[in-house]
Design a binder for these strands. Structure first.
Length: 378
RNA sequence: GGACGGGUGGGUGAGUGGUUAAAACCAGCAGACUGUAAAUCUGCCGCUCCUUGCGGGCUACGGAGGUUCGAAUCCUCCCCCGUCCA
């Protein structure tokens, strides 16, 4: 079996350190997945991701289906080979695009009809299609198609999303297994996704329904899409409390630096977020002192590194003044250096969280993070 | 010397009698960003006062006068700049 997940260490909070074996390497959990939607973590070469120690990255079914096309990627030897990434890849199913491209799609029980944001063409993404695309891409972990809705949402909308997501999860698994019977066991596992918006009982219902179907890993979706952090935590806790200890849990789309430890404390093993990469491109840098908006005039003559306590190769070599200049001049290198630093920051933060787990200090670690990020940078 | 064209807020540049402190873009300043339609988006960007309001006052479209209830816009003179002709 090329997949296996084992819990190595647990914390009184509920946090755990684990090891996820994939066909493309071992992933130490809790782990943060840099987001590489279009088969690239924007601004970073794969060499840089290796240097940073990324073990698992996220790519997107919908976007890669539209361009360059999953069959093309299959023909080119699969996503790993196509993008020359030796580490593991998790593909999101396109469920988030149901949310983010709300103006361009129509959801029915059959699936989601999208009008492409690229050329306006129409595409029907069904649970089966999402499985097919992800198998063609050859990701290590695929996600069942889900319906992600904005929060806060009316209860009726949340109920409907849960019902649909469960139905789609069942179809996803059936089709996944059918493909396995037809074509042989894929080097891929499929996770189901819990929905339920901000309704604790719906979250529990959704979780139990997915447990009935049975997945090798479970994701919590539809959070951090508008609700306060405390609510995100509450809903996450409702779900992880019901999930089996021996399966990985993936909280989708989170989070801010000061929130990561909270999620780990709730027993989350995987998290991903565009924040470190997007914020970097927008000149927001994360440091041990808090957020640093590098475009601010106050850094124009600042010879210090972005973060004096950071061990990344950007901080080892370049000054705030230089970074600020690159942003002011609109230079591409600004995005490259800033992204490198921010991803390093996130991955290093996860390392610290993993080291903290097992010693009962995660709660104080978390509150310290919240304090640092409540204040501005030094 | 002559003939045209032109001088607008930090820059480029709209505006040819009144909702014009003056479009738009750039620069500048500040902010946002959570399974990426995001190298994007938002706000501010003459000075000043306060009871912070689609508020008041002042200054402003090369300069000085003038016409008009009202001028960046019309007239006169002057000063600059560009092109062309001598």
């Amino acid at each position: 079996m090329s997949f296996c997940f084992e819990v190595l260490k647990t914390d009184p909070t509920g946090a755990r350190c684990g090891r996820l074996r994939t066909p493309h390497g071992v992933v130490e959990t809790p782990v943060f997945l840099p987001v590489g939607t279009a088969a690239t973590v924007k601004g970073l070469r794969q060499e840089a991701l290796e240097e940073l120690g990324a073990s698992l990255i996220l790519a997107n079914t919908y976007h890669l289906y539209l361009r360059p096309g999953h069959e093309r990627v299959r023909g080119l030897g699969g996503l790993h080979r196509f993008m020359s990434w030796r580490g593991a890849i998790l593909t999101d199913s396109g469920g988030y695009q149901v949310f983010s491209l709300a103006d361009l799609r129509k959801v029915t029980d059959e699936g989601v009809r999208f009008r492409s944001h690229l050329d306006g063409s129409e595409h029907l993404l069904t649970p089966e299609k999402a499985v097919e695309i992800q198998l063609a891409l050859g990701s290590d972990i695929s996600m069942a198609l889900d319906e992600c809705i904005r929060t806060p949402a009316p209860r009726a909308a949340a109920e409907s999303a849960v019902k649909r997501t469960t139905g789609w999860a069942r179809r996803s698994q059936n089709y996944f297994q059918e493909c396995a019977r037809r074509n042989g066991e894929p080097a891929q596992v499929q996770f189901g996704i819990v929905q339920g918006a901000t309704f604790a009982d719906l979250r529990r219902v959704s979780t139990r329904q997915l447990l009935d179907i049975g997945f090798p890993g479970y994701a919590i979706g539809g959070l951090a899409v508008g609700e306060p952090h405390a609510m995100t935590c509450e809903m996450t806790g409702e779900v992880t409390a019901l999930l089996p200890q021996d399966r990985p849990r993936y909280l989708m789309g989170v989070g801010r630096p000061e929130q990561l430890a909270d999620y780990a404390a709730l027993g989350v093993d995987l998290m991903d977020c565009v924040l470190p990469t997007r914020a970097a491109r927008h000149a927001c840098l994360y440091t041990s002192e808090g957020r640093l908006l590098i475009k601010n005039a106050r850094y124009a003559d600042d010879q210090r590194p972005v973060d004096g306590h950071c061990s990344c190769s950007v901080c080892a070599r370049y000054s705030r003044a230089y970074l600020r200049h690159l942003f002011a001049a609109g230079e591409l290198l600004a995005a490259v250096l800033a992204t490198h630093h921010n991803v390093h920051f996130y991955l290093d933060l996860m390392r610290q969280i993993r080291e903290t787990i097992g010693f009962g200090k995660l709660a104080s670690f978390s509150s310290e993070m919240h304090m640092r990020y409540a204040e501005g940078p030094a």
